[in-house]
Amino acid sequence: MVAAQHRISSGSDFTRALKHGARVTTRDLIVHVARPGTFPVDLTSMDLSGGPGPRDDVATSGGPRLGLIVSKAVGNAVTRHRVARRLRAAFREVTVLIPAETLVVVRARPSADGPNSVTLAGQLRSALEHRRVRALLTESQPVARPAETVVP
């Protein structure tokens, strides 16, 4: 189970990841990955009175945040919950590949009920290791510059 503070629950975070993130498609999954510094900030939605905007009850550091989209096209409720459990378990295995504060939205395609948990975990791992995702994750991290040496 992914801890509640590491789940994406607001619609605005889903929208940001879907619109501004890197998208990678595998056989059974569509994975969107976004870093907080890679999408424009809507200052009008930031309300300090507790309205839309940054939430206090959601972790902003300490690990990546996961959002799942498992539609009725995947199957009935039992099937959708089984796929969601498999995807959460797969996400726990690959969190070491993802920097903190990263938004990851996984959309299950209709064929996602067929493969077992190991196969889904492999597809999620390959999506997160894709060059588009790697480029996004490395571009938004600060680049360490070597110290300049002064030659007398």
Rank of each mutant, 00 (worst) to 15 (best):
D13T: 00
R132D: 13
S61G: 06
R145D: 06
V118S: 15
M1I: 01
D56I: 10
M46F: 14
L66R: 10
Q123R: 12
V106Y: 05
A144Q: 07
V104I: 12
G63M: 05
S61H: 09
R35V: 06
R16T: 09
T149F: 08
S12K: 05
R132Y: 10
R109V: 02
D13I: 01
I8H: 12
G21P: 00
R65H: 01
L66P: 01
A100H: 03
F39P: 00
G122T: 03
S45G: 07
R35W: 04
S10N: 03
A73L: 02
L29T: 06
H130W: 06
A144I: 10
A34P: 03
I30C: 02
R145H: 08
N76H: 15
A112F: 11
R125C: 05
S10A: 12
V151Q: 14
P54V: 03
S10E: 13
S49W: 07
L29H: 03
H130K: 07
V70D: 01
R134Y: 00
P99T: 01
A34M: 05
T102S: 10
A22V: 06
R131E: 09
M1D: 08
A112D: 13
D47N: 06
L120T: 04
V118P: 01
R16D: 15
S12D: 15
A144W: 06
V118I: 09
S140M: 09
P64A: 11
A89E: 11
V105I: 11
S61K: 03
P54G: 04
E139S: 15
R16V: 11
S9N: 07
S10G: 10
A100R: 04
G37Y: 02
T15Y: 13
V104N: 10
S12F: 05
T102K: 05
V70T: 05
G62E: 02
L124V: 07
A121P: 01
I69P: 14
R65F: 10
G53S: 02
S61I: 04
G67Q: 10
V74H: 01
R23P: 00
A17L: 11
F91R: 05
T60N: 13
T138L: 12
V31D: 01
A112C: 09
Q5G: 07
A34T: 04
P146C: 13
T79G: 04
R134K: 11
T79I: 05
A100Q: 05
F91L: 05
E139M: 11
A121W: 08
E129S: 09
P64S: 08
I8A: 08
G75W: 01
I98Q: 12
A121N: 10
Q141I: 02
Q5I: 13
T102C: 07
G50L: 10
L97V: 00
S140W: 07
S111T: 13
V78C: 14
R27F: 01
P64V: 11
P115Q: 15
